[in-house]
Simulated scan of single mutants.
Amino acid sequence: MSTDTAAGPILSLNNIEVIYDRVALAIKGVSIDVPQGGMVALLGANGAGKSTTLKAISGLLKPERGEVTRGDLRFPGRDIDALMPQQRVQLGIVQVLEGRRVFEHLTPDENLLAASAVAKSSRAEMTRMRDRVYGYFPRLHERRTAQSGFLSGGEQQMLAIGRALMTNPKLLMLDEPSLGLAPFLVAEIFDIVQKINRQEGLSVLLVEQNALAALEVVSHGYLMENGRIVMHDSAAAMKQNPDIREFYPGGSEGKNFHEIKHYSRRKRWLS
């Protein structure tokens, strides 16, 4: 399990509210801290508001006609709400979007070099960072000259994370990296992200529906429902919570709350 290496948070959301099209309230009073060098999970079902929260942090709300209308968003300790997405990348915030978005017509090598251009790195620095990515993802090195559209889903997810690492981030935000992947691939990718966190002190905010898989590698978790945080605890405590185990994909009982009638009435935090 990841451990927090410093007292102060690198990222702090305090009572954040997001509205789309000036009328639709998407997230309400969300407060989250990511410790410096820590790994934190934001859990919840599809549509809970997790991706909206990430986009509020990375600055990607405006193209979708969303805006932060209340609360404080600080990284690290600096108000970043007025900054453009590119300015946030330059500060060290990088988001790996859901869906393994890579340039399918380019090779992994070309994808990584294209990503490093965002950070305006020297050629020597590009090479060093690319070699670092291949060190973490040796499978990508084996496929480095293949067209990325022909990579497997797991390899494309590795490449998406590798592209993010090429910007030399301080905070890595992963949006549903397990989506559509076999459990053994999810475990492999999560183990690699945990290794990067431990070896480099890279702070990680992991957004997931697969709660139990995520809670294996983080120190703390937040559970989101209907745009609100309804639970926050250590990963160890959340893994043992019967509602987490029952109602979220990856639980030992294998139940999906979409298939359980009146599930919301049975949750202890809603009763």
Rank of each mutant, 00 (worst) to 15 (best):
Y134T: 04
I80E: 06
S264I: 14
N15L: 01
V68A: 02
A41G: 04
K255H: 14
D81A: 13
L172C: 05
S234V: 00
V204W: 07
E253C: 05
G47S: 03
L205I: 01
L42T: 08
I57W: 00
S116R: 02
M238N: 01
T5G: 10
K28Q: 11
L206Y: 07
S148P: 11
E64V: 04
D191Q: 14
L174W: 13
R101D: 01
Y248A: 12
E98Q: 15
E246C: 09
R70H: 12
R130D: 04
P242F: 11
E142I: 08
F247D: 08
K255Y: 13
G47E: 08
L25R: 09
G29L: 11
A6E: 15
G180D: 09
G135D: 07
E216K: 14
V118N: 06
A119G: 08
F184H: 15
N15R: 13
M129Q: 14
V94A: 06
Y136G: 02
V23P: 00
L171R: 03
D175Q: 03
P9R: 06
L25M: 09
S121C: 11
A124Y: 03
G8F: 12
R22L: 11
H232T: 09
S116W: 08
A41Y: 00
P169H: 09
D175M: 12
T69H: 07
K28N: 14
L206T: 04
R268N: 14
S31H: 03
E98T: 11
G251R: 11
E17S: 10
F257D: 10
H232E: 14
P63N: 04
T107E: 12
M173D: 04
K239M: 15
F103T: 01
Y263W: 15
Q147Y: 10
L174M: 06
E67A: 07
A114E: 12
A235V: 00
F190Q: 00
E142P: 08
P138M: 04
G37I: 08
N15S: 15
L181P: 13
